[in-house]
Design a protein around this nucleic acid. Structure first.
Lengths: 123, 123
DNA sequence: TAATTATTTAAGCAAATACTTAAATAAATA
DNA sequence: TATTTATTTAAGTATTTGCTTAAATAATTA
């Protein structure tokens, strides 16, 4: 891949391009963090898990397996990804492990999940 | 995969499970829509494109190629995905095509992209 | 302590993703 | 009209993802 300027159009605004590069650079960490969160929430199964956790506060892997009609290991692997990313947390009660949305990301996902309900009203 | 109830724990709240299933069902369309948006925005390159479009209003494929330091076809394929999903729109000016965030999703992404800046302040 | 139950982990595989390079469109200009 | 420029499209490929099945942990109960 060429690393030179790819476009030679006269109208190209080089100040704008520089400004954009700097903006990406100074926000690099949070851009990476948030796009990672979005990628995790962008899987339909995980999005449903987050949607349900917001409504019910906490649920266990076998609840999810029942509700989503999928295997327990498949659910468990999704939960693990979100737990690794600190999107959700876990609490043990005997053999059962209850998952919940972590405090840290509660408001972020609340803002996104709001759109599920509002969109339904419109439709 | 077994389609039966996967978990036999006595404490399982069958009303809760039913309520969850119904909630997913009645919101199925918007859940699918929004998780699809999230998946598209969850790619770091596309997230950067949206971030830049929010700041600069409109940019062309070769601007993005310069700024993101990647090939024009690679950029173009990301733009196409977002255009197909109506996340962004396009306007032609001679040979140059300028992309912008579509009115429809402007506020949705604004809410998400806000977190980029605020997170930077905290850090 | 042995068996059962809930969950996780690991290996394997099919599908999806994101790039590459080359070719095709489309508009501007010589 | 031929050439250049901006963009898109298409084919090929390596990587990632999300499932499956089987085995491993961990806690409860008989």
């Amino acid at each position: 891949m060429k690393l030179e300027v790819s476009c030679t159009r006269a109208e190209a605004d080089h100040q704008q391009i520089l400004r954009c590069k700097e903006s990406l650079n100074s926000n690099a960490d949070s851009i990476e963090d948030i796009s990672r969160l979005m990628a995790l929430a962008g899987n339909e199964v995980r999005f449903k898990i987050l949607f349900l956790l917001q409504k019910e506060f906490e649920l266990c892997p076998c609840d999810f397996a029942d509700i989503l009609e999928m295997s327990v290991p498949a659910v468990s692997q999704h939960l693990r990804k979100m737990k690794d990313a600190k999107i959700i947390g876990a609490r043990r009660e005997g053999q059962t492990i209850f998952y919940h949305i972590s405090k840290k990301n509660e408001s972020f996902f609340a803002a996104i999940l709001t759109n599920v309900q509002s969109k339904r009203k419109i439709a």
